[in-house]
Amino acid sequence: MTFSNKFFATLTMLLLCVFAFSSCDDDEMMDSDFDFTGVYDQADQKGRPAINTVFVGESRKDEFNETTPSTMGAAFASAFESRLLALNAGYTTNALGLDATTFTSVLATDVLSVATDKPTTFFDGTNVLTGRTLADDVIDVELLLIFGGPDGSANPGLTSDNVDANDKAFSNSFPYLASPW
């Protein structure tokens, strides 16, 4: 009885040592990096602000989020045009001079253009879509282009949400976003 207890104790210690040694070897040989293998499937996507929110109907929101931008135009441009005309039946052109078909075919490919040789602004009256800064009032720009007509003066109650700035100041240095509440 005593002998077999001792035998098992020794065996257990031996096994533990073997495991300990082999894990030491693994650490040295593999540098213990993380697992980055596998395939990752698109679940959500965003380029310009609020495009899906405004232009995609409830039944196709997930489909839009799972579509790669190069195929969005073919799949969604006509739905975007119908949506624009449902939001603003009187749409002719907007402040960029784009008719309904042209405007919505641009929007349906949801990418954010960024200039590498100009200051960044979503739209400052002169520069158009050279990126998006944190402080850009992008919703007012989009409302103006959807509802404001050729010179921005149509539908005055719909061309600004009257929220012009963030509730916390942004930083001028990295990481730029304000600390949390």
Binding site: G47, V111, L112, S113, V114, A115, T116
Partner: peptide, 20 residues
């Protein structure tokens, strides 16, 4: 910018992707 190519306009977007 020098790591992003020489184009004066980039088209950019973000995606979340879930491990299969």
């Amino acid at each position: 910018k020098s790591q992003l190519g020489s184009a004066t306009t980039l088209n950019t977007w973000v995606e979340t992707k879930l491990k299969r």
